[in-house]
C-alpha cells in the first residue's frame, strides 16, 4: 500500500491535481466571462425597464450611470433615463431591513420627485405572509407609483399601524414597514442629491 511512501509523493500528487483543475477552471472563467457580463447587463436592463417607462427615454439607462455616495457612505449607482439629452427619470437601488434579512428594491423617480415605479429585487421574507411585496404575489407594490414626498405628506409615509396611510398585510407588519421606510428614504435621498442626479452630461 501507499502507507510507506514519503510525504512529498502525496504532496506532489495533491499539487498536480490542484494545478490541473486550477488551470481548467481559469480557462473556463476566461471563456464565460464576457457572456456572464452580458447576462448581468441584460438583467440590469430588465430590472430598470420595470421602474422606468419606455416612453420617457431614448437612451439606454443601464449605460448612463452616475455614482453617488449613499446614506451609508458606500457608492450608490444611479441609472438615468434621458430624452433628447434631458434627464427624464432616474433609478437607483434602495434597501430596507425586513423580517428575515435585507430587502433590496429598485426605484424609479421622475425629475419632479414622483415615483415612476418600485420593484422588489431580492428578499427572504416569509412565504405566504411577507412575500406580498413581490409583484408576482400581489399588486401591493404598484400603489406607490405616482406618489411623492408631499403626496402623501411626509408623516403619512408609514404603514397604517404606525399612523401612516399604507396598508400592512394581515400577519406581517415588519415587511411592509421596511418597504415603506426604504421608499421614503429613497425619495429623501433623491431630494438631497437631485442636482447631481439631473445634471446634464457634457
Amino acid at each position: 500500500m501507499s502507507l510507506h511512501r514519503p510525504t512529498y509523493v502525496h504532496a506532489f500528487i495533491l499539487g498536480v491535481f490542484c494545478f490541473g483543475f486550477g488551470i481548467l477552471i481559469a480557462s473556463l472563467d476566461l471563456v464565460t466571462r464576457e457572456d456572464i457580463k452580458l447576462r448581468q447587463f441584460e438583467d440590469m436592463q430588465a430590472s430598470l425597464a420595470k421602474v422606468i417607462p419606455l416612453a420617457i427615454h431614448d437612451n439606454i439607462p443601464a449605460e448612463d450611470k452616475v455614482v453617488l455616495k449613499g446614506d451609508d457612505g458606500k457608492d450608490l449607482t444611479v441609472y438615468r433615463a434621458t430624452k433628447g439629452g434631458k434627464v427624464t427619470g432616474v433609478a437607483f437601488p434602495i434597501q430596507g431591513s425586513g423580517y428575515a434579512g435585507p430587502i433590496r428594491l429598485m426605484m424609479g423617480v421622475d425629475p419632479e420627485g414622483r415615483i415612476l415605479g418600485v420593484r422588489v429585487a431580492m428578499f427572504k421574507e416569509t412565504p405566504g405572509l411577507g412575500d406580498k411585496i413581490d409583484e408576482k404575489k400581489s399588486d401591493w407594490i404598484l400603489r406607490f407609483t405616482g406618489l411623492s414626498l408631499g403626496n402623501p405628506p411626509v408623516d403619512k409615509w408609514k404603514v397604517k399601524k404606525d399612523g401612516g396611510q399604507f396598508d400592512q398585510f394581515s400577519g406581517a407588519t415588519i415587511t411592509p414597514r421596511a418597504v415603506v421606510g426604504a421608499i421614503r428614504n429613497g425619495l429623501e435621498f433623491f431630494a438631497a442629491n437631485k442636482a447631481q442626479m439631473l445634471e446634464a452630461r457634457k
Binding site: 483543475f21 477552471i25 473556463l28 464565460t32 456572464i36
Partner: peptide
Amino acid sequence: LIVAFWVTVVDLACNAWMH
C-alpha cells in the same frame, strides 16, 4: 477538489449560457 471543480463548471456555464 473534484466536486468543487464540477460545481464551479456547472455554476459558470449555467450563468453564461443557461441564464
